[in-house]
Structure formats: structure tokens, C-alpha cells
Write a protein that binds this DNA or RNA. Structure first.
Lengths: 102, 102
DNA sequence: TTAGAATATTTATATATGCTAATATATGCA
DNA sequence: TGCATATATTAGCATATATAAATATTCTAA
């Protein structure tokens, strides 16, 4: 029997992990998540700060919500988004910090 | 002046980080890197183990080499690949380990 | 130098992705 | 109800991506 110190890479885990990384593999989504590091933001707030189309921001938020990277909360007509996966946030900040010391 | 505990997300860092994550955001490349966790492998070896086309494997290795995720070493007609970015390997194993405890 | 093995590259194709404009939906308020 | 605001969704387009087949390159050995 083979001795292996690494976790087995099942099909299910492979799909999940690649899905997460794929979500992080886009500048727009990274910028959005970076904005959400500290605090929640509304869709318009994000669109204005990043100087992007409201539709684009909404679209990306929707895709990230689908895989539970962010969550939303309604307050009147405004919807506030915040991150919803501490581990993914850790992966992101680690990568950014590392990029600062290249 | 705004007090911020997070690293500034410059355009250069954004490009670099999203590039890394994009590379990790594909099942094929993850499987290749997972094979290379412990030891170097030849192109054919990878292709056989993953039951994939030689051309496809070579292509993905080439794309990962371009951004220095893997490196290669020639021995006769055989070329052995191994990973070349400890930090990226850490990101990957962390993500896989986490996927094991979801 | 010629044949064979291992890898790389080129080309083609199908699919996925990101963005935008336009439209739709939902909420609050007069 | 009717209107304004905020967000979501749809449709279309241009680009990027992953894969595979075919071909080219590089090296070894006879």
C-alpha cells in the first residue's frame, strides 16, 4: 500500500477547489472581494468605487453568491454584500500579501 | 488619512494574483500540480497517469512554466517537470485540505 | 546519418467567460 | 396608485480557453 502524506484528490474535491480558484482568477472579482475584506458594501457603492458598470458588478456578485463566496442582506431598496467564506478570504489575503514581497 | 490593515491592491499585484488563481482554476492543471507535489514527473508519465493526451499535458505544462509555477529539467529525450513556486503549492494544498473538511 | 522516442508547436474547434445595453423586478414613499 | 431608486436579469458580442489531431523539433543510439 502506498504511503501518501497528501489528501486524496477525489473528483468532488477537485471540482470544488477548481471552482473556488476559478472564481478568484479574475481581476474584477478580486477587486470586489478586496473591497469587502473589512466591511459590507452595496452594489452601487462597489460599482462607483471600482468605476464599473452596475450590471457588471451585480453579475459578478451573483456568480460569487452562487458558490457562497459572498452573502447579501437587504435594507430597503439597497442590498449589502459581504464575504461569506473565511477560508477563501484567507487564501486571497495570503496571495496578495505574498505578491507584495515578490 | 485612512488606516488600513490590508495590503494595497496595486494594478501590478492584482494582475499577478489573478494570474496565479486563474492557473489554479482548472481541474487539469490542479491534477498535474497535485501529481508534482512530491516528485518530478515526465510529460508522458503525467499523461498516462491522468489518462490524458500528451499534447494537452504538454500545453498545460507550458502555460504553467510561463508563469513559473513549474520548472523543467532534461535528461536525454525525457523532460522532467517539478513545481517551482512553494507558495502556490501551499495555497493549493491548503485549499484541498480545506475541501476535505467541508 | 538515419530511425525512433519524447516533447513541443501549430491549427482547428467547441465552449466558456466577461462586459455592456436594455429591460425587468422589487422596494419605499408621496 | 404612480414614481423614483436600487438591484437583477436577459441577450448579444467579442475574446479567451481547453482540448485534440497533425506536424515539427530535439535528442539518443545504432
Amino acid at each position: 500500500m502506498k504511503y501518501d502524506t497528501h489528501s486524496e484528490l477525489t473528483e468532488e474535491r477537485l471540482t470544488h477547489v477548481s471552482q473556488i480558484f476559478k472564481a478568484l482568477g479574475d481581476p474584477t472579482r478580486i477587486r470586489i472581494l478586496h473591497l469587502l475584506l473589512d466591511r459590507e458594501c452595496s452594489v452601487n457603492e462597489i460599482a462607483e468605487k471600482l468605476e464599473m458598470n452596475q450590471s457588471t458588478v451585480s453579475h459578478q456578485l451573483s456568480s460569487m453568491k452562487k458558490i457562497r463566496l459572498v452573502k447579501s442582506r437587504r435594507e430597503g431598496t439597497t442590498i449589502y454584500y459581504s464575504h461569506d467564506d473565511k477560508h477563501v478570504i484567507d487564501l486571497l489575503t495570503e496571495a496578495i500579501n505574498h505578491a507584495c514581497h515578490n
